Computed example of a mutant assay.
Amino acid sequence: MPPIQRLVLWNIDHTLVDVGRVTREAYADAFRRVTGRQLVTLAPTAGRSESEIIFETLAFNDVITDDDHLPKFIAALGDAFRARYRDVRAHGRVLPGAREALAASARLPGAVQSVLTGSIRPNAILKLTELRLDQYVDFEIGGYGSESYPKSALIGLARSRAAEKYVEKRFGLPIGEPVTVLIADSARDVQAAQIARVKVIAVATGTANEAALRSAGADLVLPTLADTQTVIRAIDHFTSPSAT
Results as ranks from 00 to 15, higher is better:
L102T: 02
V167E: 02
T23L: 15
V179D: 01
F55P: 12
R170Y: 11
R233L: 13
F139W: 02
P174W: 03
L157R: 09
A163Y: 10
D79G: 05
P174M: 08
T41G: 13
F238S: 02
G97Y: 02
D67L: 14
E210Q: 12
K72R: 15
R107A: 10
H69Q: 09
E25W: 06
F73K: 07
V167K: 08
A26K: 05
K199C: 14
R132W: 02
V137I: 14
G156S: 02
A211E: 11
A124H: 04
P109H: 07
T23E: 13
A187S: 14
R197E: 15
G172K: 04
S114M: 07
A212S: 13
F238A: 10
V181M: 07
E100C: 09
V181P: 08
Q229E: 14
P2V: 11
A208T: 11
A162V: 11
L173A: 10
P3T: 10
E164V: 12
K127P: 06
G47R: 03
S49W: 00
F171I: 06
A153R: 07
G176A: 01
P122K: 03
Y27A: 11
R99A: 14
F55Q: 15
A46S: 12
P71K: 07
P44F: 04
E147H: 06
A28D: 14
V8N: 01
G145N: 03
V200N: 03
T23V: 13
L7A: 09
S105M: 09
Q38L: 15
P44W: 06
S186H: 04
T205A: 07
Q191K: 15
N209K: 03
N123E: 08
A46K: 04
A90R: 13
K199F: 12
A111E: 00
K169S: 10
R89I: 12
L70A: 06
G142S: 05
D67H: 12
